[in-house]
Amino acid sequence: MNILPDGRTDTKGAALYSGYTVKTLAMWRSQGKGPPFVKRGRVWYFIADLDAWLCEGASRGATSAAEGKRERRAPRSAKCDAGTTASGA
């Protein structure tokens, strides 16, 4: 996975990082769902945005849009746990 110095990665890198497929991320983009992305010639995802999106889904117990498809999902990040304990929640 290639992460650029400004913290962004392409769709393939985002798929590896998040545990979702490239195709799922593409479908979510077209539906206005999924993690935030930037399109500047190519589609880019910022790692900080992916972390926040993954933690948000983990904290509210949300499932993916492909709920019944048994898609591989990344485990809850230690960053999510660190963020909740720091806030005292």
Rank of each mutant, 00 (worst) to 15 (best):
N2L: 13
G57V: 03
R60H: 08
K23P: 05
P36M: 08
S59T: 09
D6P: 12
R29W: 01
G57C: 10
A89M: 08
T21R: 07
L4A: 13
K69Q: 10
W44G: 01
G13W: 08
T63H: 04
G32S: 06
S59D: 07
G61I: 05
R40Y: 06
W28T: 00
S77M: 04
A82R: 15
G68I: 03
W28P: 01
V22G: 05
T84D: 11
E56F: 09
L4S: 11
D49I: 02
A26D: 03
G34P: 01
G61E: 03
A62N: 10
D51W: 08
G68F: 04
G68R: 07
A82L: 15
A58G: 09
R72Q: 09
S64W: 00
L4V: 07
G19D: 10
S87T: 13
A86C: 09
L50F: 04
T9A: 15
R40I: 06
M1I: 09
R73Y: 06
T9L: 15
S77D: 04
P35R: 00
R73L: 12
L16F: 11
R42L: 09
G32E: 05
P75R: 11
K69R: 10
A52H: 08
M27D: 05
V22R: 15
G13C: 13
A52Q: 06
R29N: 00
D49A: 06
P5Q: 13
R73F: 05
C55T: 08
P36C: 08
A62H: 10
I3T: 12
A62F: 09
A86S: 09
Y45H: 12
E71P: 02
K39R: 13
R76M: 12
S30D: 08
D10V: 15
K79G: 10
R29V: 00
R8W: 14
W44P: 01
A78Q: 12
A66L: 14
T24P: 00
Y45M: 09
W53N: 00
M27I: 14
G19C: 14
T11K: 03
S77R: 03
R60N: 07
D81V: 15
R60Y: 11
Y20N: 01
G68C: 04
P35N: 01
A86E: 11
G88I: 01
G61K: 05
I3A: 04
K12H: 14
M27P: 01
K39S: 07
D49H: 05
V22W: 10
T24A: 08
G32D: 04
R70S: 14
A74G: 07
M27C: 08
E67Y: 04
R42V: 10
F37N: 01
R8Y: 15
M27Q: 07
N2F: 11
G7E: 11
A48W: 07
A82G: 11
A26S: 14
G32V: 06
G57A: 05
S87Y: 05
